[in-house]
Structures are given as structure tokens and as C-alpha cells.
Amino acid sequence: MSDLLAHVPHTRLVPEGSYGPEGKAGVRARQVLGLAVATLTARKGKAADLARRLCAAGLPLVDAPKAVSTMAFTTIGTGPGRWLILAEGMTGTALLAHLGSLAGADATLTDQSDANLIVEVTGPDARATLAKGVAVDLHPSAFGAGDAATTVVSHVGVTFWQSDAAPAYRFMVARSFAPAFLRWLTASAAEFGIALSGTGRG
């Protein structure tokens, strides 16, 4: 990794481009932009009622490590009575207002839109790359589309989920740790070739 990314300061995101053998791209990674993100935490004893009410309103909440997507939202269970809510085409303020109108006093809400970086990882060698550092069994029989986990990757805390069977994975990483995560990902995928986009040109 020291040779591959020697030109990249440790505090900067790995610039977009191709890394590894020329002409190979067994892994594709891109920063996902334009998402509003919020945490929704049920108040004590309110998780079941909250989930039922929001599901009836078209916002599916599964009180388990699962990712569920609708046309407008993705909900990810991150702990008992706790979810991440992602929305395309909304501001963080608008998302909080919408969730607040549904949850009322049964939950606390926090805007996370600017606090995290979301990276999508796909390609035929995505699973083999991630297996080098993700502390979760990614075999299709153990982790498939709709599964989610909050764990550590190369000493960096992440929440990630498999969004389809291709497979495609999305990782949410705190912005302060995103450079370290991308350095790990780029180095781990280099043997297969990785095409990285959305992170700027350095």
C-alpha cells in the first residue's frame, strides 16, 4: 500500500482513478452522493409500536440487521430500536421533518447527512476484496441481499449492507475515517484492479 498510495496524504480521500494492473477492474467503488441520512432511535418501550406505525405509513422498519428499500427510502437496522434512514432527493432538514411527522414523540432523530461518507462497492471480485478485512462472513449462504451489519474494517467502524445479489455493497463510514477506509479498500482490491470514482482528483 505504501507504494501504491505513496502520493496520497493520509488525511485525503484516495483520488478517483484506476489502481492495480492496467486494464483490469474486478472491483468498482464510487462515492454515493445526494443522499440525506438520519438516525431514528425509538424511545424506551416504543420500538414495536413505532415500527408498526411507520411501516403502515410506507417506511419499513425491521428491528434487525436488515436493509429494506422502497422507491424513496432505505432503512437499515443498526441495533435494538435503532435505524439509519436514507433518502434520495431530500435535504437532511426535509428528512428530519418527514420522520418527525411520522414518529412524533416516540423517537429521537439526528441528521447524519454531512457526518458520513457512503461508498458503493461492486464487481466480480468485490466479495474476495472485502473478505480481506470485513469481520463478517460474506458467503451468499450467510450474508445476502438485504443483510446489514455494523462492524470494524481495518480498525475503522462501518455500517454496511448488501443492496443486491450482484453483489453490490454500500458502506457508511464517518468522514474523519473515510480516508483510512478508502486506503484499505484500494490496497485490498489492487490485485484485481479497482476503478474508483466520485472522490475527486486529489
Results as ranks from 00 to 15, higher is better:
residue 23 G to E: 10
residue 129 T to M: 02
residue 132 K to P: 08
residue 175 R to K: 14
residue 139 H to R: 09
residue 70 T to A: 00
residue 150 T to G: 09
residue 81 G to H: 05
residue 124 P to T: 02
residue 185 L to M: 01
residue 33 L to T: 15
residue 104 G to I: 05
residue 57 A to R: 10
residue 115 A to K: 11
residue 26 G to R: 05
residue 125 D to H: 11
residue 106 D to H: 12
residue 134 V to A: 05
residue 56 A to H: 10
residue 55 C to S: 15
residue 144 G to A: 11
residue 184 W to I: 03
residue 27 V to A: 15
residue 8 V to N: 01
residue 126 A to H: 03
residue 102 L to W: 05
residue 200 G to F: 04
residue 89 G to F: 09
residue 151 T to S: 14
residue 108 T to I: 07
residue 183 R to S: 08
residue 119 V to P: 02
residue 34 G to P: 06
residue 111 D to R: 02
residue 82 R to H: 12
residue 163 S to K: 13
residue 35 L to V: 08
residue 27 V to P: 09
residue 162 Q to W: 04
residue 96 L to I: 15
residue 140 P to K: 03
residue 73 F to G: 08
residue 87 A to D: 15
residue 104 G to N: 08
residue 120 E to A: 15
residue 157 G to D: 14
residue 89 G to L: 07
residue 70 T to P: 00
residue 145 A to C: 10
residue 42 A to V: 07
residue 48 A to P: 00
residue 198 G to A: 05
residue 71 M to A: 13
residue 18 S to G: 12
residue 14 V to I: 02
residue 90 M to Y: 05
residue 117 L to H: 14
residue 99 L to P: 10
residue 184 W to T: 03
residue 72 A to K: 10
residue 50 L to E: 05
residue 100 G to M: 08
residue 116 N to C: 11
residue 32 V to G: 01
residue 177 F to Q: 13
residue 46 K to R: 14
residue 143 F to S: 06
residue 53 R to G: 11
residue 198 G to D: 02
residue 180 A to K: 13
residue 127 R to Y: 01
residue 145 A to Y: 04
residue 19 Y to I: 00
residue 176 S to I: 13
residue 138 L to P: 08
residue 1 M to P: 05
residue 55 C to W: 15
residue 155 H to Q: 10
residue 133 G to W: 03
residue 133 G to H: 05
residue 106 D to W: 12
residue 31 Q to P: 12
residue 19 Y to L: 00
residue 191 E to M: 00
residue 21 P to S: 07
residue 184 W to Y: 05
residue 73 F to Q: 06
residue 87 A to Y: 13
residue 157 G to E: 14
residue 86 L to G: 07
residue 11 T to P: 01
residue 201 R to M: 08
residue 69 S to F: 01
residue 99 L to D: 08
residue 167 P to Q: 02
residue 11 T to G: 01
residue 192 F to T: 05
residue 143 F to K: 06
residue 39 T to I: 11
residue 50 L to K: 02
residue 99 L to R: 08
residue 102 L to N: 06
residue 29 A to C: 07
residue 58 G to T: 09
residue 119 V to A: 04
residue 135 A to P: 03
residue 106 D to S: 14
residue 192 F to C: 00
residue 133 G to R: 06
residue 177 F to T: 12
residue 116 N to I: 12
residue 109 L to D: 02
residue 1 M to F: 10
residue 152 V to M: 13
residue 139 H to A: 10
residue 145 A to N: 07
residue 81 G to K: 03
residue 71 M to P: 00
residue 76 I to L: 13
residue 115 A to Y: 05
residue 182 L to Q: 06
residue 200 G to S: 05
residue 149 A to E: 13
residue 176 S to P: 07
